[in-house]
């Protein structure tokens, strides 16, 4: 099968998928967090600012805002264009990438991405104010699902489709490590407190990845830190876990040309996730492990760029 895929277009569909995934995750995360805060007992020092930390965007936030209150954090996470990871920025970038790769994605993609971005931008106040936030964020997540559905059902399973998969799975794996890390951070911060918040925190960690029900069905056990961490890292059945994402990513790589180097890196990361057994203590060393995984995933992205996206690479 000869199939043409421009390097530039491959890069754009890859990023489109990453940004769509990021927008969806951010929307869900803000929603879950709002929910979590309502359940926190008094005296637990859990602030909205942790959301900023999860995404490593503290610097950009502090340049812009002094007050680390709900309104500023939610604004920063959803709407801020100085935050390269905000939901609106992600949708905008997804839109720009879709716009420049219209010829390889299903015809309706552009229309729906465009519509979703318009909806998100025009109604952003509904996301920032508490009253209608839930419904607004739900609409965003729904829009993202609609686009994923289009990719799954109305697109040739060709290279473009594989690059969409690469973008989506890498973003998911990365997001799972960040959310686990955030959960661990909250528990660490609350260690001195007498109230047991573990159940609430880990339950919401699962919900941030839409994984609460899948966890219960597969684990059939209580929501504890170790069980949740093991599930989100090493479960092979749920699509937003690190291992599932890496498996899918590996399948996509196998169908792409010149993929031996990225496959090697992906295998190293996967073996590490499978071999890991430090789930009993989710303290500082666990957080360090999450951080290392993030760095390895970043190096995998760099390898994609060198292998397929760089325009200089041509004379072979």
């Amino acid at each position: 099968m000869t199939q043409i895929m421009l390097s530039r277009v491959a890069e754009r569909v890859y990023w489109m998928a990453r940004y769509l995934e990021r927008a969806e995750n951010t929307a869900r995360m803000v929603g879950v967090y709002a929910n979590l805060l309502l359940d926190m007992p008094r005296g637990i020092d859990l602030s909205w600012y942790s959301l900023v930390d999860i995404n490593d965007t503290g610097e950009a936030f502090n340049e812009r805002y002094k007050n680390r209150d709900e309104r500023n954090v939610v604004k920063f996470m959803l709407a801020d264009d100085t935050n390269g990871n905000s939901m609106l920025t992600s949708l905008k970038m997804a839109r720009e990438n879709a716009r420049t790769s219209r010829d390889v994605v299903p015809q309706d993609t552009w229309e729906i991405v465009n519509e979703l971005h318009l909806f998100a931008a025009e109604n952003i106040q509904r996301g920032i104010n508490r009253g209608q936030r839930h419904h607004y964020l739900y609409e965003i997540v729904k829009g993202c699902h609609q686009i994923s559905g289009l990719f799954a059902n109305s697109m040739n399973k060709d290279s473009a489709s594989e690059f969409i998969r690469l973008g989506r799975t890498l973003e998911r794996a990365d997001m799972a490590t960040r959310i686990l890390d955030a959960g661990a951070a909250v528990i660490l911060a609350a260690e001195e407190s007498s109230t047991n918040i573990s159940q609430i925190v880990w339950g919401n960690v699962l919900r941030s990845l839409d994984a609460y029900q899948p966890f219960l069905r597969d684990e059939r056990g209580p929501v504890t830190g170790p069980a949740v961490a093991r599930f989100l890292l090493a479960n092979e059945l749920y699509p937003r876990t690190v291992l599932f994402s890496l498996n899918r990513l590996g399948k996509a790589l196998a169908r792409l040309p010149h993929s031996s180097e990225p496959r090697q890196i992906a295998t190293v990361i996967k073996d590490r996730v499978i071999a890991f057994d430090g789930y009993q203590d989710l303290g500082t060393s666990f957080r360090g492990y999450m951080n290392e995984l993030q760095l390895q995933l970043a190096s995998l992205h760099d390898c994609f760029a060198d292998t397929w996206f760089a325009l200089e690479r041509n004379d072979d």
Partner: peptide, 23 residues
């Protein structure tokens, strides 16, 4: 394919090629 100038290259054989993920 929708291409931009930087996607195309004229090689030594004076033929036009596009840069793709397979070369």
């Amino acid at each position: 394919e929708l291409v931009e100038g930087s996607d195309l290259v004229v090689a030594k054989d004076d033929c036009v090629y596009m840069r793709t993920i397979s070369g």
